[in-house]
Design a protein around this nucleic acid. Structure first.
Lengths: 187, 187
DNA sequence: CCGTGCCGTTCCGTAAACGGAACGGTCGGA
DNA sequence: TCCGACCGTTCCGTTTACGGAACGGCACGG
C-alpha cells in the first residue's frame, strides 16, 4: 500500500500516526473519537492514515477531544537542534528556574557510532536521562551507565562524561540538566 | 447562519494575527509572501483575516517561508494546562512514538492541599517524575513515594495512584508517561 | 493631471476535505 | 451456528478552501 500516497507532505503522515497513538493509548475506537470530536469517521480514518490534508478546524476538534494541544501532534521537523555534536543532537524543550536550581529539559538523540565526550560542568550539576528507544551508555567516562527503553540514568556531571548508543539503533531520550544555584540572590 | 465571522474557531483568528505580525515584521507584502510560499493571494488574505480554516498544508507552506515552525503560529507557549485537576495541572510538551512504546512528556505542577487521585491506566504503563522544586509525594495509593528537588520517582500506573505536595510549597516537576504498545498494527 | 505599479480585497471556477451511509471483517452471546 | 454490535475502510454528494483574475485604493513620476 501507499505506493502513491495522494497527500503525504511527509508531515501529514506523522501527524496521523501521533493521533492514532494518542487515541489507542486511551483505548477508544476510531468511531467513538470521531463522534466525540464531532467529525466524520471517514475524516478521522483518512487523517490517521495520512491521506488527507486536514483543516485546522478539524485538527483542533480532534486534539481538543484528546486533551492535548495542537502542537502535540504537529511534528517540528525543521526545528534546528539547540545543541549539536558528532553523535548527540538535543533540542531544548523548556527551562525552569527555581530558587534552588535551574533546570533545562531537552529531547536528545544519540546516533550510533563513536561515543561523544562532554566536558565537566560546574560543581553540583546533575544529569537525568530517561531512554525512549535504543540502548544508551552514558555517564562519567570512568564509570558509564547503561539503560534501555524506559530506563533511567542519573549522574553528577562535574567530571567529563560520555554519550554513546549501544548497538546500531539510534537512541531517543529526554535529558534533564540540573544546575544548582550557587547562592540565593535575594530579590 | 454565517454569523458575522464565518470561521472563527477563536484559533483561526489568532493564527491569522500571528501570521500577519510575522509578515509585517519582515517588511514584506501580502502579495510577495503569497508568491514566495506558493499560495494564492486570496488564500493568504482570507487566512490573515481569520475568515478561512486553512489546511495544514497551507499553513506549513507559509510558516516555512516565514522561517518559523508551525507551532509558532498555533497555540502560544505557556498555554492553558492540558490536564487539569483539583491539585495537578500538566502541560504536554512532547509526544514520542517508538515501535515499542509511546511517550508523553509533561511539565507538571502540584498545588498544596489535598492529594489528587488518578485512576489506573492500562497495564504496563509507567510514570517517571523528576522533581524540580518542592517535595512531591506520589505513586500507588497504597505505597506512595516521596522526592524533593532533583529527586526521581517511578512507578507502574496500572493501579490507582495519587499526587500530593508535601508542605506548603507548590511542586514543579517533569512527568513522563510511558505507554507500551499493545501490538504492532502497522507494517 | 493622469498613467503606472504595487498594495490588499473580492469574485469565481476548480479541487479537495468534509459528513453520512454502505461495506466487509471480527468478536461475543444466544 | 446464527445473529447482532461494533470495528475501520470506502463510496458519494455536499461544503469549502484553493489559485487566478479582476477590482478599488494609494503613492510616486512624468
Amino acid at each position: 500500500m501507499t505506493a502513491a500516497a495522494p497527500a503525504d507532505d511527509r508531515g501529514a503522515r506523522e501527524v496521523g500516526r501521533r493521533i492514532r497513538s494518542l487515541r489507542t493509548e486511551r483505548g477508544i475506537s476510531l468511531s467513538e473519537l470521531a463522534r466525540l470530536a464531532g467529525v466524520g469517521k471517514a475524516t478521522l480514518s483518512g487523517l490517521e492514515n495520512g491521506v488527507r490534508n486536514p483543516r485546522l478546524e478539524t485538527l483542533y476538534a480532534i486534539t481538543a477531544q484528546l486533551g492535548v494541544p495542537l502542537t502535540a501532534v504537529l511534528s517540528a521537523p525543521g526545528e534546528a537542534p539547540t545543541v549539536r555534536g558528532t553523535a548527540v543532537g538535543a533540542t531544548l524543550l523548556e527551562v525552569f528556574d527555581d530558587r534552588e536550581a535551574t533546570y533545562e529539559l531537552y529531547r536528545m538523540r544519540v546516533d550510533p557510532g563513536p561515543a561523544q565526550l562532554s566536558p565537566a560542568h560546574s560543581s553540583g550539576v546533575t544529569e537525568h536521562v530517561t531512554v525512549f528507544s535504543g540502548v544508551l551508555r552514558a555517564g562519567p567516562v570512568d564509570a558509564p551507565l547503561t539503560a534501555g527503553p524506559g530506563g533511567y540514568l542519573r549522574w553528577t556531571s562535574d567530571v567529563p562524561h560520555t554519550y554513546a548508543a549501544v548497538g546500531e539503533e539510534e537512541v531517543h531520550a529526554s535529558l534533564l540538566l540540573r544546575y544548582p544555584r550557587p547562592s540565593t540572590p535575594d530579590t
